[in-house]
Amino acid sequence: MKVIIIDDEASFADSLKDLVQVEGYEAEVYHTLKQAREGLEGADEPMVVLLDHDFRDVGEKDQVGYDFCGWLRENHPFGLLLPIIYLTGRETTEHFLKQQRDNPFVHPSAYISKDQLASDQELLPNLLKQYQEQFERIRELSEKQGVQQALIGFRDMEPEDSNYYEAE
């Protein structure tokens, strides 16, 4: 499992990469969304994405965090199951739930603030471990069921199918 870090705060992204690596995962850092799009075009391996929520890239109109999240979910075979974590301290639970209901494709798997990551030393290792186990389960399911949907069936799923996602 690879960990993708997308943040224009170079020092923070760099420190995050160090921590991810010492936990034994491969890490890739992108400082602009444009670079991230180029680097992740065609990616199909299991990965966790840590995305700065306040990211604003210059040059492309749709290059804000939400759009990037949507693009990634639409293009990666894991679709809605791809763990994307927004790094922010600004969001509320209410907004989190609303977004989950309204537009699951741009809805992240979690919101974590940078100070939470910095002060809780076990948070990131535990999260990464949890996602790794989740990928393992998906692999086992696909082997058992032999059904494409178990692994990658989310690509063609419409946002209205959120009931399915919630049931999960």
Partner: peptide, 26 residues
């Protein structure tokens, strides 16, 4: 200030992990 403080917090975790692993160089 959250940015550098955050980076320092992560840095401390990294140092702690390497120390626990006995990796003196890192």
């Amino acid at each position: 200030l959250n940015q550098p403080v955050g980076a320092i917090g992560l840095g401390v975790s990294t140092v702690k992990r390497y120390f626990e692993k006995g990796d003196r160089g890192n």
